[in-house]
Amino acid sequence: MGIPEDDLTQIGASPATRSVLETLKEEGHISELVDGYRLCIAVACAWNEQPDLGNRKNRTNMFGTNTIDSSGLHLRVALTELYPDYANTPYRVAESLAELGAKIVSERMSGTSIEFTELVDLASSIGMPDPS
């Protein structure tokens, strides 16, 4: 399947990702699902995950892109620059990264609790240059 050239205006999630977001909200870790969605995108991005734009299987729309990127389109800017190969479709990148990030977040959860600072520390260690 080719890479779509048009970007999304509605951004979605698979049932698995939605479940992770709902757990985060139910356990009181986030106020709104969109906070968790952005968290998942950032985690996948920090983990240097590569988006798979050809696959939107099982995803149903959750947010408008203006909801996910309400403050000055910063997410769009960041993704455009961090993933220049898909510069025209940053929200498709965001959606794919959210799926990948939700898996990482789910794995990092201990029972129903999660430490955000652990994610920050891991992101920093991934971002550090390889000492070798």
């Binding site: 009181g28 870790h29 986030i30 106020s31 709104e32 906070d35 952005r38 968290l39 995108i41 950032a42 985690v43 991005c45 920090a46 240097n48 910063h74 960041a78 620059e81 961090l82 955000f116 994610l119 920050v120 992101a123 920093s124 991934i126 971002g127 550090m128």
Partner: peptide, 27 residues
């Protein structure tokens, strides 16, 4: 604990920026 969780929730809405920061800084 609930009070602390609430405080954390409020701060956590922007934590994505701090998680993203190392990659942004490198770029």
């Amino acid at each position: 604990r609930r009070e602390l969780m609430k405080e954390r929730r409020e701060s956590a809405s922007e934590i994505w920026r701090d998680i993203l920061a190392p990659r942004i800084q490198a770029k």
